[in-house]
Design a protein around this nucleic acid. Structure first.
Length: 289
DNA sequence: ATTAGACCCTGATCGC
DNA sequence: TGCGATCAGGGTCTAA
């Protein structure tokens, strides 16, 4: 499902059921996802209180009492559904469904958490490109998963000077550079396409050839599109839903993504689909130069 | 050192 | 209706 805005949406939806709450039960099924579950995974989680739920790049991070952090990545098809019972069905600004009897028993339901909110959280991932693991909180940024990540695009560390330095000399297309998590952490295929469209930059331009004067425009477009998408609750392709079952609606604001053959909203040209580094790129050849 | 491509896996959709 | 090809919001490993 997820790029930065979708993961951020999941984070805010999950927080009321997790932050400050204790994991009373953890169940895993079918061995592992992209990586095997770590040793004694359920035992190391059970009974622990979640201090905070954070996001880094496309990872969710639940810092636990006792010095470990639960790391969750949703891959392409991962979802986290929250169910709450009785009076706590309303948690914070969210209203959750009660858990149906079969919640968490589906074919692709891989991990089920119970918390003392009380709530049940079900991790579902048909393609199993997601991952769930535990790392020491204190050294998390040194972990293999995080050591190479670039800056958070919505932080103050992301600005034109950073982007200019990160793109300098790169011979890969700018579209591919935006997808590179070592350059900027959290952008995926949708928002790379949308940010380039807003910047009127061709996805085929080599990253190192983007002019210095164009870089602030691109940096702003990235910040804007991500911020707007978060405000909209992310994008709902297929049946992706927020933790409380609501649908994000940023997909209605796509200007080029998944719109091959449709007219460009800016110039009336025809939106084209090409493949770069094995991923679809959507853009307007007439106005993105 | 960089960059392109294969690969991981399942499900939905499209053309025949 | 069935079947194969293609595509999907991601990341990692290998080989040029």
């Amino acid at each position: 499902m997820p790029e930065l805005p979708e993961v951020e949406t999941v984070r805010t939806g999950l927080a009321p059921a997790l932050e400050g709450h204790r994991l009373t039960k953890v169940e895993t099924r079918r061995g592992g996802l992209r990586l095997p579950f770590p040793k004694a995974f359920a035992a190391r989680l059970t009974g622990k209180r979640v201090k905070t739920l954070r996001r880094r790049a496309k990872y969710l991070l639940a810092d636990l009492e006792g010095g470990e952090t639960l790391v969750i990545h949703l891959g392409m098809s991962g979802r986290l559904a929250v169910y709450a019972e009785g009076a706590v069905r309303r948690l914070g600004q969210y209203v959750y469904d009660a858990a149906p009897a079969d919640a968490g028993t589906g074919k692709h339901d891989h991990v089920v958490f119970e918390t003392d909110a009380p709530a049940r959280i079900v991790f579902t991932d048909p393609r199993r490109f997601g991952l769930m693991t535990l790392v020491a909180t204190a050294t998390l940024e040194d972990d293999k998963l995080f050591a190479g990540l670039g800056v958070e695009p919505l932080s103050n560390h992301f600005h034109a000077d950073y982007l200019a330095a990160a793109l300098k000399g790169k011979k890969t297309p700018i579209k591919s550079a935006l997808l590179d998590q070592r350059v900027i952490a959290g952008i995926g295929n949708i928002y790379a396409c949308e940010a380039l469209f807003r910047s009127r930059l061709s996805p085929k331009r080599l990253a190192g050839k983007v002019r210095r004067s164009e870089i602030p425009v691109l940096a702003d477009a990235i910040k804007m599109v991500l911020t707007e998408a978060i405000a909209a609750g992310g994008s709902s392709l297929r049946d992706y839903r927020q933790a409380d079952g609501a649908l994000g609606n940023f997909q209605h604001h796509f200007q080029v993504y998944d719109r091959e053959g449709e007219p460009c909203p800016a110039c009336g040209g025809t939106i084209k689909r090409i493949v770069q580094a094995g991923r679809s790129t959507f853009y307007c050849p007439k106005c993105q130069k």
